[in-house]
Design a protein around this nucleic acid. Structure first.
Length: 575
DNA sequence: GCCGTTTTCGGCCCGACTGTTTTCAGTCG
């Protein structure tokens, strides 16, 4: 079991215990431990082997032995026992937005409801409204939630790039409201998480109620979830859940800090504030005598707590607070550090543009180099290049390099790694290229062992420079293929190969966790766009977002090197 | 169930909104 699975099991256990009416602090201990585990850099199985499970905060003797049990058997006794006492469908009911353990228990005890379908029927038959603290509106709300949940295959998560466009559209509309002074995007979107569950916005207004009224009555709003005096929530087309929080100027900083999150980061900050005798909330810092220090800028809060102004991308409670306290915060990579793009397709394979157009677009973006990496012949559907056409491809790039002074065009390939780990081109041919990217495009269903061996074999080829989109995931479409990333990263480090962060909004592969792991093993990362049309070149910002979330600095990234450094690394003769 | 620079017992992050009440529990972020 990996850390995520163990954390999820603790979270489910917490829900089950709450359903049973257990002591709330006991249930919280499980969620605290789950949170702590999700934030670990190290795999639990490694800590377990080294006898270091004691080092995890929020994990005491009892939970430690449950972790051990899970690592050895895949589950733990107390969990199995609790599960056997509670009907399976109850878990699904508690996953319905607006229904927690208390309500699930009420429906179960009073109506015998044990599944989402039964709950839906009870609501339609108006049996819910007769229960204590329930009524007509609750019934309608439950039915709406069920319908929305069932119509939503992706569990409400959206690729960050798409959500960002919607967020900007809403921000622009809100800015036209005379009662709104300023609108800022907050939440996981501000932290640039690869997928986001909702869109959080903060507005400054001296008339919050009128601002909220404007918000919930925007033309495109499909449903108003709630609408209070300082906060509103709506559903926007595409099943986007949008929250707006309205605040006066004086509290803007603390509000922005609070609603940027993450939740885990904020909890850690509040605990830190408490050790200094202050309570922290979205209105500022309160001391023991009740005096509030309001914060107009969020940097005020960090400064007060003795921390650097932490970049939103790393606010995940994955060590950023400790790093800041000890002066070990990374200087995160920025857009201006990028000197070129190393994964671009032309119309020689499945790209839309000529090599010349790509070179010109790269010049416009201030790049020193661009690698044209068209597909190899296995990817027939993408018009992959035969041996003969690859030779012509190399010649064409030579010709263009004569023409362009402002940029170096690198001749490359995105060569298929076949199912047996062999590459599409011979070593003789690969040797003639400036840069060799390899990738898995077919046979995605291979088992973990075969897939790992396949990629490792490619990493061990002396001509290979970069593995593209190393896990093959496509957000909302298909999961990563089954591969031992620890092994891939270790072998990449041994052979001095780079791994890619693919900047396509649908891939973002490697993700932040794996990219950070790669950095820790000393593996260089290439942030590439996998461009197929000119505008894709600008997707580089999404790749940089992932890199920043992975704590990467400019020195960790291959394409922050200038041309001379890059040529030296790739072994390209200077000309 | 966890934890300790007052504590090994008695605390445990904090506030808005809703729907139901007539003062608040439940849920969410």
């Amino acid at each position: 079991m990996d850390n995520i699975q163990i954390a999820e099991m603790f979270n489910r256990m917490a829900k089950l215990l709450e359903f049973k009416g257990e002591n709330q602090f006991k249930t919280r201990a499980y969620t605290n431990a789950a949170r702590s585990i999700k934030g670990l850099d190290e795999e639990l199985k490694v800590l377990y082997k080294e006898g270091d499970l004691d080092s995890i905060s929020g994990v005491g003797e009892a939970l430690k032995s449950k972790i051990t049990e899970m690592l050895e058997t895949g589950t733990f006794d107390a969990y199995e026992k609790t599960m056997s006492e509670i009907p399976q469908g109850i878990i699904d009911i508690m996953d319905i937005p607006g229904i927690g353990p208390k309500m699930a228990r009420l429906f179960y005890e009073k109506l015998g409801v044990t599944s989402v379908d039964e709950l839906s029927r009870a609501a339609r038959e108006h049996r819910i409204r007769r229960l204590p603290r329930m009524g007509e509106k609750q019934e309608e709300k439950i039915l709406r939630s069920i319908v929305r949940l069932q119509g939503d295959k992706d569990h409400g998560r959206h690729p960050m790039a798409l959500a960002m466009e919607i967020a900007k559209e809403i921000r622009n509309e809100l800015c036209s409201c005379p009662h709104i002074e300023k609108v800022t995007i907050a939440g996981s979107l501000r932290r640039k998480k690869d997928t986001v569950g909702d869109i959080d916005l903060i507005a400054i207004s001296s008339e919050p109620e009128r601002a909220i009224e404007f918000f919930v009555n925007m033309e495109k709003v499909e449903e108003i979830l709630n609408s209070g005096t300082s906060k509103g929530s709506v559903i926007y087309p595409g099943n986007y859940h949008v929250d707006l929080r309205v605040v006066d100027k004086e509290h803007y900083g603390s509000m922005l800090q609070h609603f940027t999150g993450s939740k885990e980061h904020n909890i850690h900050l509040r605990k830190l504030a408490l050790t200094k005798g202050y309570s922290l909330n979205e209105y500022g810092l309160t001391n023991e005598s009740g005096n509030i220090t309001s914060c107009t800028g969020e940097e005020d809060i960090y400064e007060f707590l003795g921390l650097d102004h932490l970049p939103p991308e790393i606010r995940e409670d994955r060590g950023e607070i400790e790093a800041s306290l000890t002066g070990n915060l990374p200087r995160l990579i920025e857009r201006k550090d990028i000197k070129g793009d190393l994964h671009v397709h032309s119309n020689w394979s499945d790209g839309a543009n000529t090599m010349e157009e790509l070179a010109e677009a790269a010049i416009q973006r201030g790049y020193e180099y661009i690698a044209i990496t068209d597909h190899s012949h296995s990817t027939g559907i993408a018009n992959g290049l035969s041996d003969r056409r690859l030779q012509e491809h190399i010649d064409e790039i030579d010709r263009l390099n004569e023409k362009f002074d402002e940029i170096k065009i690198l001749s490359g390939t995105e060569c298929d790694i076949r199912t047996d780990g062999k590459l599409d081109y011979s070593n003789d041919l690969l040797e003639q290229l400036d840069i060799v990217i390899v990738a898995v495009h077919a046979g995605l269903e291979q088992d973990r062992n075969k897939m790992t061996k396949r990629i490792v074999a490619a990493l061990e080829n002396e001509h290979v420079d970069i593995i593209a989109h190393p896990t093959g995931r496509k957000l909302g479409k298909r999961p990563a293929y089954d591969v031992d990333m620890e092994k891939v990263i270790t072998v990449a480090a041994e052979n001095k190969k780079a791994l890619e962060i693919n900047s396509s909004p649908w891939r973002l592969d490697l993700n932040d966790i794996n990219a950070r792991k790669a950095k820790e093993h000393g593996v260089m990362i290439a942030i590439n766009t996998d461009t197929h049309t000119l505008d894709h070149l600008d997707n580089i910002t999404f790749g940089i977002d992932v890199a920043r979330r992975a704590w990467l600095e400019a020195d960790d990234v291959l394409n922050t090197m200038n041309l001379k450094q890059l040529c030296s690394r790739l072994g390209i003769p200077k000309d």
